[in-house]
Design a protein around this nucleic acid. Sequence first.
RNA 1: GUGGUUGUAGCUCAGUAGGUUAGAGCACCAGAUUGUGAUUCUGGGGGUCGUGGGUUCGAGCCCCAUCUUCCACCCCA
Length: 464
Amino acid sequence: MSKEKPSIPKGTRDFGPAVVAKRNYIFGIIRRTFEKFGYLPLETPAMEQLSVLTGKYGDEGDQLIFKILNSGDFLAKTKPEDVEQGYKHLTRKISEKALRYDLTVPFARFVVMNRNEITFPFKRYQIQPVWRADRPQKGRYREFYQCDADVVGTNSLLCEAEIVQMINGALTDLGLTDFTIKINHRGVLAGIAEAIDEKGREGDICVAIDKLDKIGQEGVRKELLERGITVDAVNKLEPLYDLNGSNEEKLAQLQSILGNTAEGERGLNDLREVWAYLQGLQSKALTAENPSGEPRLMLDVTLARGLSYYTGCIFEVKVNNVSMGSISGGGRYDNLTGMFGLPGVSGVGFSFGVDRIYDVLEELQLFPESSQQSTTALIVQFDKDSEMYALPVLQQLRDAGISAELYPEAAKLKKQMGYADQKNIPYVILIGSEEMASGKLKLRDMKRGEQHDLTIEEIITQLK
RNA sequence: GUGGUUGUAGCUCAGUAGGUUAGAGCACCAGAUUGUGAUUCUGGGGGUCGUGGGUUCGAGCCCCAUCUUCCACCCCA
């Protein structure tokens, strides 16, 4: 008998009852938001073929995919020279499956496989865990849940506008008041690169610019030069950092800088159209201001996002004044299904990071009390007679749709009351000899500490 | 993946220059209170000091490895 201490892998967590209750509260609000906008649920397997996932997230992403070792004698088909050719070569020989890295690529795979059954535009949402072999930190786990909503089969920028609406709606319903929805466009980034005579280098430029609020303008300048961007280009780039004024004014300023680049023009037109849709939708995201006075929806040319499949608008959401990375992000991808042999299907989607939202709500104490209670009423018993008397009462409560339980033994009152207190049960019903004789049960409101003698019918009415 | 950091009772932490039976608060259990919880009083249980090696007469404390935590890069939900 080995008595090893049990443990769970790095970056994974157990969720106890109280935590699950709060997580379900978040899932519920997100699910309702998605459904309000016409998205329907989809679920896909935890594991995908490795070939489906590789190459979709850039080199960095490929490194972070959890591979599953082939079962059985996984070395059967390998030869000594496979080892000599390095781990990447060997990986393909001993691993054919991998845990999904996000929900967007499996969705694209699903669309391609079911292209003949699907009616386009196809709107789906998906709430499932994903896995990344990242090094864990606060708010960064190796297993975490994403809540994705994507639509494929339409180029309409109404989808982008509705994504802004969904983000604003869900986060507002969760009680958040100080958050920023950043929006940008890959075309704008490409146009900027072209306008400063560094066409095609937007990748390097983005990685550097993205750190602006972290390392400052000087730090970014240094990094850009290290990445081989010319001094000339950096000088042209820097005025873009502090575009000021309203979003409309920013668009106008960008127009004069990028107007004559094809990509830049495409990006600006898309963004203007998104704004027009939002105005039509009377978007609260468009008019809302954060406590700081900044607009909630912000055009941010420094927003980059690493996932390599994005081609159009990109989004990212940051809760202000908490130490937490982005809690939501997404964008448009024009050719994801093309990689699986179905070209010409444009898609756009975004994702909420529930685990981070959870940590933020916890920090800001925004979980409502109702998300933390389990049972509505506990029946306390005193002896065998009262237990038997309580059984039909218990059933009547449940038939009336009230979640109820009977303490399963005639333990001391203190213990039974303590149980209710611990479990955050708001009402206790006491059934003893007096109550059985009179037919009036004692209903105790645990929060107020008051109790009244009531018939079972009266109790049901009150608790319903 | 690179460089750091953390790990002592269920939880939050003490633990002095390596020296007998490792402590506190909270939580838990029992009693004060044989029909009433979150307050009060009394008593009680619980730790092979993350794990595995090593140095030493002797290690919670020193060394190595490993796992874990958190942080900065990288990247990202």
